[in-house]
């Protein structure tokens, strides 16, 4: 009988390994970070030019503009999540690693959020000034983005995992993912609007938080299963 290899595996080490790798790649291939951010900035700045600089109109539509732009910027960046790994064979190696797939998938999603979600959150208050967002709405804007953008990455990952094996899956990806984004959009903009009226918005925030924790616990498993099907 041969000696079988069986070593102790650390979930935390595997998680840190994949996050570090994806961040290294993104920092060397800066398009991944700059493209969605630039898209976000351009879309938001085009609205005052198209609609006119009237403060009342702009502050009325500001939450919607910022959130729709953030949503589309995330959608634009989703493709990178698994596509290049699938194209060069690293995805196969991840599926064949002894670590549970959901840990590796969760690490990739966290890295994706750090690359695309976090820059959006940092730049959002500056763009909100441009759109004359109500002063009392800033906290709500930041909180909804902080809770909402991870949901976009998590749900989007399911769509990417399902379409990664398809040559031209771009349209299919939008059709799959956008309907799932709608609840986040509705509750986030509603929370910001409520905050503008100086009313409590903790209800909407609680629902977004529920969406966040729900997708955080369930999405990695769905993504793992979808990846197995896609590489079959």
């Amino acid at each position: 009988m041969t000696n079988l290899a069986q070593q102790h595996l650390s979930y935390r080490a595997a998680f840190a390994l994949v996050v570090k790798r994806d961040l290294t790649i993104a920092l060397r291939h800066k398009d991944d970070i700059i493209n969605p951010l630039l898209f976000f900035i351009i879309v938001v700045t085009l609205f005052p030019l198209g609609i006119g600089p009237e403060a009342n109109t702009l502050s009325r539509i500001a939450p919607g503009i910022i959130w729709v732009a953030a949503l589309l910027a995330t959608l634009l960046s989703l493709d990178r999540l698994f596509k290049s790994d699938h194209a060069d064979g690293s995805l196969e190696q991840m599926l064949l690693s002894p670590h549970p797939i959901f840990i590796l998938v969760l690490a990739k999603i966290v890295a994706h959020w750090l690359i695309t979600g976090l820059p959006l959150i940092i730049i959002a208050p500056l763009l909100a000034v441009l759109l004359h967002l109500h002063e009392q709405s800033y906290a709500a804007l930041m909180l909804t983005l902080l809770l909402g953008t991870p949901v976009l990455s998590l749900l989007g990952a399911i769509g990417v995992a399902l379409t990664v094996g398809i040559k031209k899956g771009g349209v299919l990806l939008s059709l799959l993912v956008l309907p799932l984004y709608i609840p986040v959009l509705i509750f986030a903009t509603s929370a910001i609007d409520t905050a503008a009226l100086s009313l409590p918005y903790s209800g909407q925030l609680a629902i977004i938080a529920a969406l966040f924790f729900g997708s955080l616990t369930l999405a990695p498993f769905a993504v793992g299963a979808a990846l197995k099907v896609s590489t079959n």
């Binding site: 790798r21 790649i25 060397r28 060069d88 064979g89 196969e92």
Partner: peptide
Amino acid sequence: LGHLPGVKGEM
């Protein structure tokens, strides 16, 4: 080891 080497160009 499959057809594709699984090597990242950025690393």
